[in-house]
């Protein structure tokens, strides 16, 4: 007995309080989660609440000072000005195009990584996918600015075929966004393929399924949640970005408008109103994604 108790730490206030904590699970959780929950509640949700609130404020037309008063004027301006509708439409179209492009590109790459490549080749590909994320986002967009510039490398290359590059346009925005967010699509789809047991492919072939049948009936339904998960990244990141359109586009995008209103025009209430648009679109998108089971794959 004595030899047994001697292996325990000495009896004392420290040991007794730790023992009490061990028995009291809610107290453990409180200590563990209080800092992140506090941060999340105050800094993140708090600022979001102020954003929503300030969307109903307005500027004094004479002094340009923010009037902390309830008004729906911003929302009326937002809906009535056809320019805003065009901008929203353009942004959503590009976001959808980027998502579709990244799906098409990521699918074969993720498939190859998960099911074909040897472990060595797989880690090389992982490096290749992740490496761009190590360099600064701005640097990468600027690199595209150089590539896309008039008389730049892309123009030169396409010129050989008698074509002309997209210059700074909606097409170039689509190109650059597709490049930027591709890793965020590849990784979830890769994980999705990885999770399918190999025997399912064999079982499908065994039951008479050719490659295309197996893909349509077994593979696609099983990776669809992963694809939806990846599309949340590509879609939402495109929707909110203002740097890429500023650098490689002529037209305005949602992010630009918010940025300009907030930073240049100093109309913070209208910027807040505009910011509700992507939040609303994302809410709808996430609802659809949830129906497709995207959150089971995250």
């Amino acid at each position: 007995m004595t030899s047994r108790s001697s292996s325990l730490p000495p009896e004392g206030i420290r040991r007794r309080s730790l023992a009490a904590l061990y028995r009291h699970v809610p107290a453990q959780l409180l200590i563990l989660l209080a800092p992140p929950v506090g941060w999340f509640g105050v800094v993140y949700l708090g600022s979001l609440a102020i954003l929503l609130l300030s969307a109903f404020w307005y500027l004094n037309p004479v002094t340009s000072a923010v009037v902390h008063d309830f008004s729906l004027n911003n929302f009326r301006d937002l809906i009535e000005d056809p320019v805003n509708r065009v901008i929203i439409q353009r942004t959503v179209t590009i976001a959808l195009a980027v998502t579709a492009t990244d799906m098409l590109l990521a699918f074969p790459i993720a498939w190859f990584m998960a099911r074909v490549a040897s472990p060595r080749v797989r880690s090389l590909l992982f490096m290749g996918v992740l490496l761009p994320l190590w360099s600064n986002y701005l640097v990468r967009v600027f690199a595209w600015r150089i590539i896309l510039a008039k008389g730049g490398p892309l123009d030169g290359l396409l010129g050989l075929a008698g074509l002309q590059g997209p210059g700074f346009s909606d097409v170039s925005t689509w190109l650059v966004f597709s490049y930027l967010w591709l890793p965020y699509m590849i990784l979830p789809i890769y994980a999705g393929f990885e999770r399918i047991p190999g025997s399912l492919f064999e079982a499908s072939a065994d039951l008479g399924g050719r490659g295309a049948t197996t893909f349509r009936r077994v593979v696609l339904p099983l990776v669809l949640p992963a694809v939806a998960a990846g599309s949340i990244f590509t879609f939402s990141l495109t929707l909110g970005d203002y740097i890429t359109p500023t650098l490689v586009a002529k037209n305005q995008f949602l992010g630009n408008v918010i940025y300009v209103n907030q930073g240049v025009a100093n109309n913070v209430p209208f910027a807040a109103t505009f910011a509700i648009v992507p939040i609303g679109i994302m809410a709808i998108y996430l609802l659809i994604a949830r129906r497709l089971g995207a959150f089971d794959a995250l």
Partner: peptide, 13 residues
């Protein structure tokens, strides 16, 4: 021929 797999390989979806 058809196979009964060791891990059953039932389609989960």
């Amino acid at each position: 021929v058809n196979t009964v797999f060791q891990d059953y390989a039932l389609f989960p979806h």
